[in-house]
Structures are given as structure tokens and as C-alpha cells.
């Protein structure tokens, strides 16, 4: 039992490091997706055109930008598997799908957290929000757990898009309604971290608990569902 669990985690580690290596080398993330996220943050400022409003809604904007960016990241993450039928090779090799799923989630979490760090930094500068030390701890925890929730769901629905043929357009339709609970929890917790609208840091922690619950539920469901979903 423990041997098979160890093997699953070994596979997860291999898949995650492979994904991250592919991203590092292709530089799509740094050269295309990050600038895209930055321009979204600037466009929000153009659209809302009011410093006070921007400061107040900054948490929501950070997470909306994260969600939009996550769509691009997830599509890339599974395009890599679909190209040259890489996923079929894994399947034929008898690799446990749970391992592939957990690896995909881990790589997505790392990428999303990196994005959120940049987006939060941009919010500090562009939207003039303030974060103290306690707020920073809350913010980091929120980013980790919020990314876990998004990644756990995104990897399941991303698995659907593996077989190509216009299925990429399906991802936003499936993913965005499903991550609504994560968006609500993460935005409220970030509001407390930023002190937007007079929210205090202690008020944010219950939301972090909620994010942990969502992350755990989605990760559990995804681990069970990913195998049958991609097994075609």
C-alpha cells in the first residue's frame, strides 16, 4: 500500500518537474503570459478610472486576473500532453493517472503562485494597497490554498481538453462556474490582507479555512476522477 503511494508521489514529482522544466525552457510564461497578466491589471485601471475604487476592489481584480491567466496556463499544461500523444505514451507505460494528476496540480500551483506574487506586487504599486507583516502571512497562505483549489479543478477539466479538436473552448465554460467558491473565499481573505474597505486581518483567516476545505474536496474528487476522464 505504502509502496504504491510512494510510487504515485514519485510519478507526481516527475510529472511536475517535467512540466515546470518545459515552462522554464519555452519561456512562454515569462515572455507571454506574465506580460498578459500585467496588461490586464493596467486595463482594469483604465476601465475603472478611480483610485479609491481601485484600492477597494483590488483583491477582486487580482483574483479575476489570476482566473483568466489560469485558463491560459491550464490549456498550455495539457497542450503539452496532447502534442505527439504524450499522454498516450504515459498511459501505455502503465503510469498511474493519480500520479499524473497530482503532478499536474503541483506544477499548476507553482505557476499560479508565481503569477499571484506578480499580480499582488502590481496591485501594491498600481492600486496603492498596503500590506503589513500579518497581512503578508495571510496573503501568502491565501495564494497557496486558492491556487490549490483552482489547480485541482482546472487539472480535471483540462484533462477533458486533451484529445484536442476545439475542446479548449470548453474549459472556461466548465472551470469558471466551478471555481466560484474559491474566488469568493480567496477574494475575501485577500480583502482582509489588503485592509480594503476597513477589513481586518483576523477576519481573513476563516476564509482561509474555507479555501483549505475546497482545496481538499476538489483534490480528492480530482484524484478519483482524472483517470477515468482521460482514459480513452
Amino acid at each position: 500500500m505504502s509502496a504504491s503511494i510512494n510510487r504515485t508521489f514519485g510519478i507526481a514529482k516527475a510529472v511536475a518537474s517535467k512540466d515546470l522544466r518545459v515552462e522554464m525552457r519555452s519561456r512562454v510564461m515569462t515572455n507571454q503570459i506574465l506580460p498578459f497578466a500585467a496588461i490586464v491589471m493596467v486595463l482594469f485601471a483604465f476601465a475603472l478610472d478611480n483610485d479609491g475604487v481601485l484600492q477597494r476592489v483590488a483583491p477582486g481584480l487580482v483574483w479575476m486576473a489570476t482566473l483568466f491567466t489560469s485558463l491560459v496556463v491550464v490549456q498550455r499544461s495539457f497542450a503539452v500532453e496532447a502534442a505527439d500523444s504524450a499522454i498516450d505514451a504515459l498511459r501505455v507505460a502503465g503510469v498511474a493517472p493519480q500520479g499524473v494528476y497530482l503532478g499536474k496540480v503541483a506544477a499548476l500551483v507553482v505557476q499560479l503562485v508565481a503569477f499571484e506574487a506578480v499580480l499582488a506586487f502590481l496591485a501594491l504599486i498600481l492600486y496603492r494597497v498596503n500590506v503589513d507583516a500579518h497581512g503578508a502571512v495571510l496573503l501568502v497562505t491565501t495564494c497557496l490554498l486558492g491556487s490549490l483549489g483552482i489547480a485541482a479543478l482546472a487539472a480535471v477539466y483540462g484533462g477533458l481538453s486533451i484529445a484536442g479538436r476545439g475542446r479548449e473552448t470548453l474549459l472556461p465554460l466548465l472551470l469558471l462556474p466551478a471555481v466560484a467558491p474559491v474566488l469568493i473565499g480567496a477574494t475575501r481573505a485577500t480583502e482582509s490582507a489588503f485592509g480594503s474597505d476597513g477589513a481586518r486581518v483576523v477576519e481573513g483567516w476563516p476564509w482561509v479555512g474555507l479555501l483549505a476545505v475546497f482545496g481538499a474536496v476538489f483534490l480528492f474528487g480530482g484524484t478519483l476522477g482524472f483517470g477515468p476522464l482521460t482514459d480513452e
Binding site: 467558491p181 474528487g221 477515468p228 476522464l229 482514459d231 480513452e232
Partner: peptide
């Protein structure tokens, strides 16, 4: 068969979302 398996899993995820979305919107 593919359609059946795929949609069955998505349906189970969707029904799981009913309480989660409702609960989170209530506290929101």
C-alpha cells in the same frame, strides 16, 4: 462509451458543486 464515462464524471462534479456554491454564496 467515452461520452458516457466522461459525462458521468462531469455530472458527479456538477452535483458536488450544488452545496459548495450554495454554501459559499450564503456566507458571502
Amino acid at each position: 462509451r467515452q461520452r458516457a464515462k466522461r459525462s458521468a464524471i462531469v455530472a458527479l462534479f456538477a452535483v458536488l458543486e450544488i452545496p459548495l456554491v450554495h454554501f459559499s454564496v450564503v456566507i458571502w
